[in-house]
Design a protein around this nucleic acid. Structure first.
Lengths: 343, 343
DNA sequence: TTGTATGCGTTATCAA
DNA sequence: TTGATAACGCATACAA
């Protein structure tokens, strides 16, 4: 039942230390511009009062925040969590603070979050993927808040991005799969609406099919939301279809692990009867049994690079240069040659 | 090469719409107090200019932020990511915004982050675990920022908390394990320094041993940092020791999965030769092969409850009442009876 | 080395 | 229904 005291301000500290607010401010921001004796005096007052500077007031007066915002679909996905952690660690090193927000893959929420972070004074923004209402880009422009797109690198895109070419990565993997004799392919995809990465992966597989002389429209396509069980269900449906695929691509490792589990439950040997291919190479992929063949994405590196680029942009005005990282196939145990029984 | 315009303010909007700043402010916050005609006029100006309110100024003038901060060790751990997602979703429902920060399990960084979130005007804070410098609690008190401890519920603690009794949970599991004939036990623990949860789990196992007539100091104890490979290494060391344990507890599922993998690599059958027990019950646990026996923690429920409690506290002043959730053992495939060869 | 005074962008009180 | 204007807490240019 303590009495609610108003939180102490610069003013209070100044009074307690018998100096001016300017001096207290200097103690905080430029300690060496103030006399030793005064500094100690002020410091004591700060501790006694439990003073903490008000960020909003500070930002308003100083007209910068040293804050960079990051907006991701969800933290529940290891790939974003991992990239963000690296992003934040690197930002810290440059004296910046990270603000995160997540959207649950919903464009409306994303817009809301972007506005919120801008309002909070973010000096710059990290965004996932290119695809969004052009209006938002105009808004950011008007606000003078630069945005960096990651997780995707679309050759020829006009907006700077640091990421990898989703289409090329899956194309490479699919080509290898086809070489192993697989002709009946399937894809369990994350939802493609407003998700340019998912769309690119879909397209990449079809391109590989075309280039290998297969009919791309023969690709069995099924969308699933993001959860292990969704991958399992989709896999089951696929295995009950008229023509069973011999290789099942999955939009990400989480879906792939679900498929793998259902295969075991259905007593379908992997990779003898069906091959399963993931995407991302999160820890799950190595731990799965059999270990998952997937596409390795350099999440941490991506986060680190993004942080460096944005820090340099905000601090020195160095323009961001696009970086294309490589996502490469990792062949483990869930991919094998196609059953010869087909055809 | 666009010219960098200053970001538009309330003032600019007011000028563009030929009204006062007060009217613009009302349009934003109390739309029905303003004439239809004026409102539309203002709205157009806002869109034309790409105006966005300045959060700092707003917070300063309104003296509240509708923001609640959350400080977790790391986002790279699914248990926190999952709990936070639920926390945020529920907060949104109550009209609050979440601010996250992570500490990498470092007390200094945690303190820095707490100060940072308070400075940013967080109306309240979510913290993980009880253990921290009392100075921090004093600081929060001085700032009038309430803090809620989660992920732990220590009976009799004076600070409100929403979580589960780590010690009781592992005690229950350990008791079952001992009943299965295991006498030579080991624990691969997360680092216990400044981690009350890890310490409680250690203690809980020892208590179960004591109560079962075993010597608690016979528990083989080894600390590992947080990564699959660390769990693997620790497991290997354990298996090379003089007396091999027949059951290995792990501080969390990630370490357990590492141990499991190394067991497979060392051709040690699980659970025939050694049982492995995790903690948390994240997705990894179900996907592991053999499926991991572990302690299920209601992460999402914890996040949800915490959000409700804090929202009610901030909005209505409803004091937080502690909630103890149950963490219960989940028996899957990695736990079996002890080898009879021992003893 | 320290103090004074002004402005930052918003809300809210009071008048009109 | 609208407009003036005083806070809000801090940084900083300038003066002392």
């Amino acid at each position: 039942m303590t009495v609610k005291r108003p939180t102490p301000t610069l003013h209070d500290v100044a009074a307690a230390a018998s100096v001016s607010t300017a001096t207290v401010s200097r103690c905080l921001n430029f300690p060496d511009q103030v006399a030793e004796r005064t500094r100690l005096n002020v410091k004591r007052a700060i501790n006694d009062l439990g003073y903490s500077p008000n960020f909003g007031a500070k930002a308003m007066a100083a007209r910068r925040t040293n804050t960079i915002g990051a907006i991701i679909p969800t933290m529940e996905n290891a790939i974003f969590a991992r990239g963000l952690q690296a992003f934040q660690d690197e930002l810290r090193r440059h004296g910046f603070t990270m603000l995160v927000a997540s959207t649950s893959y919903c464009p409306d929420i994303e817009e809301e979050q972007i506005r919120s972070l801008v309002a909070r004074g973010a000096d710059a923004l990290l965004l996932i993927g290119h695809e969004r209402d052009p209006e938002i880009y105009r808004f950011l422009e008007a606000q003078g808040v630069p945005a960096l797109v990651t997780w995707a690198f679309t050759p020829g895109s006009k907006r700077p991005s640091i990421g990898f070419d989703n289409m090329a990565a899956i194309y490479e993997m699919a080509t290898e799969v086809i070489k192993l004799g697989h002709h009946q392919l399937a894809l369990i995809s994350a939802e493609t609406a407003m998700n340019d990465r998912a769309m690119a992966r879909h397209q990449g597989i079809q391109n590989a099919m075309t280039d290998a002389g297969l009919n791309p429209s023969a690709l069995q396509f099924i969308e699933a939301t993001y959860a292990i069980e969704d991958g399992a269900k989709a896999f089951e449906k696929l295995m009950q279809s008229q023509v069973r695929p011999t290789a099942v691509f999955c939009g990400n490792d989480v879906l792939a692990v679900g498929a793998l589990r259902r295969a075991r439950e259905m007593n379908i040997p992997v990779p003898d009867d069906v091959s399963i291919i993931g995407f991302d190479d999160i820890e799950l992929a190595q731990v799965a049994y059999p270990a998952l063949t997937t596409v390795h994405v350099p999440h941490r590196e991506m986060g680190r690079r993004a942080a460096i680029a944005l820090a340099n942009l905000v601090k020195n005005g160095t323009p961001i240069e696009a970086v294309e990282l490589k996502a490469r196939p990792v062949f483990r145990e869930t991919l094998g040659p196609a059953r010869t029984t087909s055809l």
